[in-house]
Design a protein around this nucleic acid. Structure first.
Length: 489
DNA sequence: GGACGGTGAAACTTCAGGTTGCCTC
DNA sequence: GAAGTTTCACCGTCC
């Protein structure tokens, strides 16, 4: 039994709760699993949560099953791969003191307010591309700060695990006695500056370079560095780019945003990305190449990583597709990232070809939570691309919106018509389509018995009503083995 | 003798996260 | 750099 587990068991024997912080999703899961195996008891409430976790998706992934099993013992893991429903269930279960232990990645330290009697920080180092590095003291404080719940406990305990006496001393000095890092303004980072400058001008807050300079001079960034000459150089460079991209124009001594520039600002796009999209777009695209274009933006990062075993598959994709983006030199640093963009696009294409979440997890190692994050961003970028092209006067771009809708819902083109109905998503639309109900006309014509068999009693009535048809509910005798789609919703 | 299964050591692989952006008939 | 996972050789057992 590891040190962590002993502490956990001790915490449980005191009838208290604990959060364990580790540095990877995999560790979070396997730790939680190991701890849960040592626990014999269970109860009804836990069974209930476990069940909900399993039903969060119509096709539970291995990850869902694993979490469901852990929760039966009152132990959970928590990281960005969980779907938002599952995350909520875990957090709520912990808040209600039903779930006793959460093993988490730093997701839980940020934003979520979940105090525990004990916080165990197992990993103070994290992989950073150049080997393992210590996490910032600020982050340690974030995590340790989860200990101690004012309404239940008069104190809390934060525990760091050290390998030996030497490390113990080191960690004590660095973290417990250590000073938190200074906070630096992020404004100076180029993408952030580009976005701000454009929005200041587009919003009419600033009308000339002098005004812009004055405004920026009053920011925290300028206050911190005091190097106004350098700031001027950066601002001039930024303005020049924005003008050359046709987002800003100079007119009688004033700087104004163009229509395109204003839209870029409204969409909260990084101007660099907006320009990149316009430059690389080509009407001769397909699902994959369009999504790859989207994935090769800063906004989509961090991308899904290409695993060793997938490399050949990804290479094939690159060779056999007509990409819109030029492939970077295979010896450049960019190339690996480029592979990731191709992988991410591949996963998204699979998703809109109706591959289930379960299969995506198996095939690509892409967990539901990660998929959702990327879908949301991809959705936004596709919409933005459409808007920019519209302003630029491109015709026949409706296809982009169709792809956007398909991405959002995760469906093939043929299901788009059915998606216009409320409460009909990828699963139900597919079911309807496979039963030869392919569009709204078919739904209108469909007889209530078969519609009820497919959608269930309530929804069948509701769907008809959406099309202006009043129908009475049809009762069905549930036969053995019959699948009621409502069970999955 | 061969199929099967368990075990442990060695080799290999992988590594946190997120906030808002848009529009919606 | 380290945890977790996979692979593989090795050994024992059973038929």
């Amino acid at each position: 039994m590891s040190g962590v587990e002993e502490i956990i068991l001790d915490t449980l024997s005191l009838d208290k709760q604990a959060i364990v912080f580790v540095n990877s999703k995999r560790s979070a899961e396997s730790r939680a699993e190991n701890i849960s195996k040592q626990i014999k008891t269970s109860n009804e409430l836990l069974e209930k949560i476990s069940d909900s976790v399993l039903k969060a998706l119509s096709n539970p992934t291995k990850q869902c099953k694993r979490l469901a099993l852990c929760i039966k013992k009152g132990i959970a893991f928590h990281h960005a791969g969980l779907s938002s429903i599952q995350r909520d269930l875990v957090e709520e279960g912990f808040r209600n003191r039903v779930i006793k232990v959460i093993v988490a990645t730093p997701t839980l330290a940020i934003g979520v307010d979940l105090p525990a009697f004990r916080v165990i920080i197992r990993d103070l180092k994290r992989y950073s591309g150049f080997g393992m590095q210590y996490i910032p003291v600020l982050e340690y404080h974030q995590q340790a700060g989860r200990a101690g719940r004012p309404s239940f406990d008069s104190k809390g305990e934060a525990i760091i695990i050290a390998k030996d006496v030497i490390e113990r001393e080191e960690l004590w000095q660095k973290y417990v006695n250590g000073k938190p890092e200074n906070i630096y303004s992020k404004l100076a980072v180029e993408p952030v500056l580009r976005i701000y400058v454009l929005s200041l001008i587009s919003g009419g807050f600033v009308k000339s370079f002098d005004e812009l300079f004055e405004f920026m001079g009053n920011t925290f960034y300028a206050h911190q560095y005091g190097d106004m000459d350098r700031l001027k150089v950066i601002l001039v460079k930024t303005i020049k780019s924005l003008v050359s991209w046709d987002f800003l124009e100079e007119f009688e001594g004033e700087i104004l945003a163009t229509r395109l520039g204003s839209r870029v600002s409204e969409l909260y796009l990084d101007p660099y990305t907006a320009n990149y999209l316009l430059e690389n777009y080509d009407a001769d695209f397909d699902d994959f190449s369009l999504l790859q274009l989207i994935c090769w933006t800063l906004e989509m990062r961090p991308l899904m990583r290409t695993r060793k075993a997938e490399e050949n598959l990804i290479f094939d994709k690159i060779v056999n597709s007509k990409l819109l983006v030029e492939e970077p030199d295979s010896y450049s640093d960019e190339f690996e990232e480029f592979l990731h963009s191709v992988k991410t696009a591949s996963v998204l294409v699979d998703w809109m070809s109706e591959v289930t979440e379960e299969k995506l997890y198996e095939k690509w190692g892409c967990a539901p939570g990660e998929l959702n994050a990327k879908l949301e961003r991809g959705n936004w970028l596709l919409y933005s691309l459409y808007e920019l092209l519209k302003i630029r006067g491109y015709k026949n771009i409706g296809r982009i919106l169709r792809i956007q809708t398909r991405l959002k819902a995760g469906v093939k083109e043929e299901l788009l018509a059915l998606l216009r109905l409320k409460n009909i998503g990828r699963v139900r639309a597919r079911k309807l389509y496979d039963n030869k109900i392919c569009d709204l006309g078919d739904v209108k014509k469909a007889d209530m018995t078969s519609l009820t068999q497919i959608l269930g009693e309530k929804l069948a009535v509701d769907v008809k009503a959406q099309l202006g048809i009043v129908e009475k509910p049809v009762k069905l005798n549930k036969r053995k083995g019959q699948i009621n789609l409502n069970d999955f919703s």
